[in-house]
Simulated scan of single mutants.
Amino acid sequence: MTTRYLLGLDVGGSSIKYQLAMITDDDRPVVVKQDTLATPASDPVAAFADIARDIAGDDLAGVVIAIPGLVDSDTGTVLRSVNLPHLDGVHLGARLGDILEVPVDIVNDGRAAAIAEARWGAGDGHSDVFTLALGTGIAGCHVVNGSVAAGAHGIAGELGHIVVEPDGELCACGQRGCLETVIGAPALRRGWHAAGGEGSPRDLLIAYENGDARALPIVDRAGRSLGDALLTLLALVDPGCVVIGGGLASAPHRLVQLAVAHVDKKKTFHTVPPIVAAELGRWAGAVGCVGIAVDRMARTVTA
């Protein structure tokens, strides 16, 4: 029997994380390779084709590529990507599929990571999972029975733009006091530097762990604000599990712990589900891509 491979590419501004999975006789994927490589700076279609051939050879059965930005998954088109502007307007799925002669799907990177965490990561065992990534921005995604519930207009899950401080800082979205203006990495960095601290938000969190008086009010405020946003989420969505990841949620998970404590203190009618840290880390996007490829293959076989 011919060996078949599925390739997942999680494309970032400077690097690509990939997983290559071999499909066994019972159609189960087995990861045989994962690694990182540099993101091509030009001629992305030809470059991605070369990457796929170099990794998988001639036995490729399908590719899923995760892109940071807005994508039309139905047509495989990159609508807009701030980090990869040379992909804007490129019909990447169709063009790459024609070259490789295999199905190529294009997905948003946050959604790929959310699907991975919901199905194979910290949300495993729950049919209704809301994932939240804390970083430069605050990305949310609701996964129900393994599929993203994107809303009528494809923008559901934007918890970063829940207003937590009505008279707060102006957000890039035009509102004031969005969660991102309090707990996003740039906001934490500004607050830390204004207090006399140095370095990154991670340095702020380390200082908090060490009892630095300058860090305490900044991190406590961030934890309370995240907790208030989570209470809104519980009231509106009622998820079965909340998974929180991203660089600002990594060990020692202090922001997550503070937020959960705030939720427990302020809850009234709310049913508080497990609120847990993500497990897949930097590989979540690539894992999600392979999972989406497996699902597509299964649908094709049964159609």
Score class of each variant (00 low, 15 high):
residue 286 A to N: 06
residue 254 R to H: 03
residue 282 R to C: 03
residue 267 K to Y: 00
residue 197 G to I: 09
residue 156 A to T: 07
residue 199 G to C: 03
residue 111 R to E: 14
residue 252 P to Q: 08
residue 84 L to H: 07
residue 40 P to V: 01
residue 95 R to L: 15
residue 217 P to H: 11
residue 201 P to F: 05
residue 20 L to C: 08
residue 86 H to G: 02
residue 212 D to N: 08
residue 139 A to T: 15
residue 282 R to H: 06
residue 158 E to T: 01
residue 176 R to Q: 14
residue 188 L to H: 05
residue 141 C to M: 13
residue 89 G to W: 05
residue 129 V to I: 12
residue 92 L to G: 11
residue 187 A to V: 09
residue 175 Q to E: 11
residue 116 A to W: 01
residue 85 P to Y: 10
residue 284 A to M: 09
residue 270 H to K: 01
residue 59 D to P: 02
residue 31 V to W: 05
residue 153 H to W: 14
residue 275 I to R: 08
residue 111 R to T: 08
residue 219 V to T: 08
residue 73 S to Q: 12
residue 72 D to T: 12
residue 207 A to G: 07
residue 108 N to G: 12
residue 252 P to V: 15
residue 33 K to A: 15
residue 138 I to S: 02
residue 292 I to T: 04
residue 26 D to H: 11
residue 61 A to R: 05
residue 160 G to K: 13
residue 20 L to N: 04
residue 116 A to H: 05
residue 41 A to H: 09
residue 148 V to W: 03
residue 142 H to R: 04
residue 189 R to Y: 00
residue 149 A to Y: 13
residue 22 M to K: 13
residue 75 T to W: 02
residue 168 G to I: 13
residue 102 V to N: 06
residue 221 R to T: 13
residue 71 V to F: 07
residue 1 M to I: 01
residue 152 A to Q: 10
residue 60 L to M: 07
residue 166 P to R: 10
residue 41 A to D: 08
residue 36 T to S: 11
residue 208 Y to T: 10
residue 270 H to I: 03
residue 277 A to R: 07
residue 280 L to V: 00
residue 65 I to T: 12
residue 266 K to M: 15
residue 271 T to K: 12
residue 6 L to G: 06
residue 199 G to F: 06
residue 192 W to E: 06
residue 141 C to W: 02
residue 272 V to E: 01
residue 125 G to E: 09
residue 105 D to T: 15
residue 199 G to L: 08
residue 139 A to Y: 02
residue 185 A to M: 04
residue 104 V to G: 06
residue 243 V to F: 13
residue 35 D to A: 15
residue 150 A to V: 13
residue 56 A to E: 07
residue 190 R to P: 00
residue 115 I to A: 01
residue 171 C to M: 10
residue 82 V to G: 00
residue 254 R to Y: 00
residue 204 L to T: 07
residue 262 H to A: 00
residue 277 A to V: 15
residue 258 L to T: 07
residue 49 A to I: 05
residue 203 D to R: 09
residue 186 P to V: 04
residue 63 V to T: 04
residue 144 V to R: 15
residue 42 S to M: 06
residue 186 P to T: 02
residue 104 V to Y: 05
residue 273 P to C: 14
residue 83 N to A: 14
residue 198 E to Q: 14
residue 257 Q to P: 03
residue 232 T to D: 11
residue 211 G to C: 08
residue 159 L to A: 12
residue 41 A to L: 11
residue 53 R to A: 04
residue 79 L to M: 13
